[in-house]
């Protein structure tokens, strides 16, 4: 049923070849069998091949910051289905190796696929049993190749990933987006966080004169502050999140936690309060 009255009496959009794909992928005209056999022709239903054009079940921002002695990351436990807060117990921070954590925003099923890829790689390394394994920069490079390869097939994995770790006494914090764009920085925030949290993270680092002057306690407080701001203003976020700590001791991913919030002011907002 078309719910837009202006469309009534007009041909349904799916009856029209919007992108002039005729005769290659027309589902109106009868396409000869020999044509449908051509590789890349599309599906037998008569519709053209289509790739992911939007994420479905999504996670919002992931935050990461370097501090004295390690890297800390944070992400909430929500997987939204559109604007619906559909799954409230999803872990978006995942330990890949002894000193590496991946955090994902964007499509959750694509993240699950990437987790599987990375875990398979690590198992392969473990089975080789030759004293070599993949460190954070190696995993980062691999993830970059995977993401760029998929965008080159015009079928991207719809995520922005944050990879945090420690290798040879060096802290590592990097992000890769769905186009395979990599960048590294002392602080990283994806999605809505890149607008709301990144300025706070940068200010906190600058205020202290560099990441080396941030203690572990400070890092926790800074991330909690950012998560609170995001919960106030990002409608796809949730006040239940985890922190991941990566130091040369190893990885710890915390139990879900929340922050104190104050909503009394909301009463005075028109259209929000009573």
């Amino acid at each position: 049923m078309d719910h837009f009255p202006t469309n009534w009496g007009n041909p349904r959009s799916e009856d029209v070849d919007n992108y002039n794909t005729y005769p290659v992928a027309s589902h109106i005209a009868k396409v000869p069998h020999s044509v449908t056999q051509i590789a890349g022709y599309g599906h037998t239903s008569g519709h053209p091949t289509s790739h992911t054009q939007q994420p479905v079940v999504t996670g919002t921002s992931v935050l990461g910051i370097k501090y004295k002695g390690g890297v800390m990351m944070s992400a909430d436990n929500l997987a939204s289905y559109g604007s619906l807060a559909r799954f409230r117990d999803v872990e978006r921070l995942h330990q890949v190796a002894d000193f590496t954590v991946i955090g994902a925003s964007g499509d959750i099923s694509d993240f699950q696929y990437v987790k599987h890829l990375l875990d398979s790689q690590m198992i392969k390394e473990y089975n080789a049993d030759d004293g070599h394994t993949l460190a954070t920069p190696n995993i980062y490079e691999y993830l970059w190749r995977v993401m760029y390869n998929r965008r080159s097939k015009m079928n991207p994995l719809w995520n922005t990933f944050v990879l945090g770790g420690v290798h040879k006494g060096e802290k590592f914090l990097g992000a890769i987006d769905l186009k395979g764009t990599p960048y590294q920085s002392p602080s990283i925030a994806t999605g809505f966080g890149s607008h709301l949290a990144q300025p706070i993270l940068r200010k906190e680092i600058e205020m202290r004169g560099g990441e080396e002057n941030i203690s572990e306690e400070d890092a926790v407080q800074i991330l909690k502050k950012c998560m609170k701001v995001l919960f106030y203003r990002d409608a796809r976020s949730m006040n239940k999140f985890q922190l991941a700590k990566i130091t040369d001791e190893g990885v710890t991913i915390s139990e879900p936690m929340s922050v104190e919030t104050e909503w009394a002011f909301a009463e005075k907002i028109r259209g929000y309060g009573a």
Binding site: A128, D130, H132, L134, P137, N138, Y140, E141, Y142, R145
Partner: peptide, 12 residues
């Protein structure tokens, strides 16, 4: 080098 930014281990 391309896939992992890692020199190939000799044993492999």
């Amino acid at each position: 080098k391309m896939m992992y930014d890692r020199p190939m281990p000799g044993s492999r």
